[in-house]
């Protein structure tokens, strides 16, 4: 049986095709200003990669902030539900799941079988999500991908006072003018966002193992800051941005079996 999971995220729209418990295709497309078109494109790309057509797919489940835009999906699952399923598939021992995306951060406590026990969400404020790092990279005039490796070079913790991304941008500019090393600024940015994410994780409680997923998990600087803050290490998948889509594809398979 073949099922699909579509994750309509704020920044990227991801699709995972699952065949009898194995991933056969993945695709990622910028959500841009037309999430409906992005959802179509991403799905088409995944089908092409797998050499399949839409009729081969028995069930499609959508998730993510723009899930309603994946009109071809038969049903939907919450981001938290998809995260728990996807993380459990990759790391069966994970009890705590941290998902940091472009516009949202989530901490989830799971029963270790993919079921959600508790969760906390940071949303609608750029300070607690990937958008924060992105805005700071712009202020530093470096590419987002450079932020992580750069901050690992830092030898010094510089405090950041501003909480809001808009005010933090000016603070970064002030730090640059004061000749603060860019690597120390990058670290300050990651320490700041890690501080917010860790507070949220502490609200649900930390039970090992801990999985870190979502696109921001690719940022090695952020990962280091968060690991230092929580004093634990994480299980991080190779492609952390696909975990929600994977979870949605698993839910699609479960629904198909029950039909």
């Amino acid at each position: 049986m073949i099922t699909a999971g579509v994750d309509c995220g704020a920044k990227n729209t991801k699709v995972v095709l699952l065949k009898d418990g194995e991933i056969v295709a993945k695709s990622i497309v910028l959500s841009g200003f037309d999430q409906r078109a992005a959802a179509e494109q991403s799905f088409a790309a995944a089908l092409e990669m797998a050499g399949m057509s839409k009729s081969d797919v028995s069930n499609i489940t959508a998730t993510g902030a723009g899930m309603k835009e994946a009109q071809y999906a038969q049903d939907t699952v919450t981001e938290v539900g998809a995260d728990a399923k996807g993380a459990n598939f990759l790391f069966p021992s994970a009890k705590t799941i941290i998902d940091v995306g472009a516009e949202e951060g989530r901490a989830i406590k799971s029963d270790g079988k993919g079921k959600v026990i508790d969760f906390a969400v940071n949303e609608k404020c750029a300070a607690g999500a990937g958008s924060f790092t992105e805005a700071m990279a712009r202020a530093l005039e470096i590419r987002l991908e450079e932020m992580g490796p750069l901050s690992l070079k830092s030898q010094k913790a510089v405090p950041m006072n501003a909480q809001c991304a808009v005010f933090a941008e000016s603070e970064v500019v002030t730090l640059i003018h004061a000749k603060t090393a860019k690597e120390d600024i990058a670290r300050a940015v990651h320490d700041a966002i890690a501080d917010r994410i860790s507070s949220m994780v502490r609200r649900v409680g930390i039970e090992k193992d801990v999985a870190l997923i979502g696109g921001v998990a690719r940022n090695v600087g952020f990962v280091k800051s968060l690991e230092d803050n929580l004093e634990i290490s994480f299980s991080i998948p190779e492609e952390p941005e696909y975990v929600s889509a994977l979870g949605a594809a698993i839910v699609a398979a479960e629904h198909a079996k029950n039909k």
């Binding site: 200003f33 609608k124 750029a126 805005a135 991304a165 808009v166």
Partner: peptide
């Protein structure tokens, strides 16, 4: 609809588009 200035700015960009 977004309170956050960062998100409101992207919202405005898409309205302009």
């Amino acid at each position: 609809s977004s309170t956050c200035v960062v998100f409101a700015k992207s919202e405005a960009t898409s309205l302009l588009r």
